[in-house]
Amino acid sequence: PKCKGCFKAIVAGDQNVEYKGTVWHKDCFTCSNCKQVIGTGSFFPKGEDFYCVTCHETKF
């Protein structure tokens, strides 16, 4: 599969995040607002966007 963030291949051994059939490298899975890496931490999906806890609390 290819990462939705950088469009490069995800190979065995890469740390990745999967959500609803889409996959990202862990470092490519970032907050849509502040761009900080969410990685495998908590996040809030809103449509096609993903927000870290801090930005979600501030924005919504």
Rank of each mutant, 00 (worst) to 15 (best):
P1M: 15
P1R: 14
P1H: 15
C3A: 04
K4C: 11
K4R: 07
G5N: 14
G5Y: 09
G5A: 13
C6D: 00
C6F: 00
C6T: 01
F7E: 14
F7Y: 07
K8F: 04
A9G: 05
A9C: 01
I10N: 05
V11T: 06
A12R: 08
A12C: 14
A12Y: 04
G13L: 10
D14Q: 14
D14R: 07
D14W: 07
Q15E: 11
Q15M: 06
N16Y: 02
N16K: 14
N16F: 03
V17R: 13
V17Y: 03
E18Y: 02
Y19D: 12
Y19W: 11
K20C: 12
K20F: 14
G21T: 09
T22V: 12
T22I: 03
T22N: 15
T22K: 04
V23W: 12
V23N: 04
W24F: 07
H25V: 00
H25Q: 03
K26P: 13
K26Y: 02
K26A: 07
K26T: 13
K26C: 14
D27R: 08
C28K: 01
C31W: 01
C31S: 01
C31V: 00
S32Y: 09
S32G: 08
S32A: 09
S32L: 07
C34P: 00
K35P: 13
K35F: 02
K35S: 10
Q36E: 02
Q36F: 08
V37S: 13
I38T: 03
I38C: 04
G39K: 07
T40H: 13
G41M: 08
G41F: 04
G41Q: 09
S42A: 11
S42V: 07
F43R: 10
F43K: 09
F44N: 02
F44P: 05
F44T: 13
F44M: 12
P45V: 06
P45G: 02
P45K: 05
K46Q: 02
K46R: 13
E48F: 03
E48W: 06
E48Y: 02
E48H: 11
D49K: 15
D49N: 10
F50C: 10
F50L: 07
F50M: 03
F50Q: 08
F50G: 02
C52M: 02
V53S: 06
T54H: 13
T54C: 11
C55R: 02
C55L: 00
C55W: 00
C55H: 03
H56V: 05
H56K: 13
H56G: 10
H56W: 11
H56S: 04
E57A: 10
T58E: 07
T58P: 06
T58N: 05
T58K: 13
T58H: 03
K59L: 13
F60C: 14
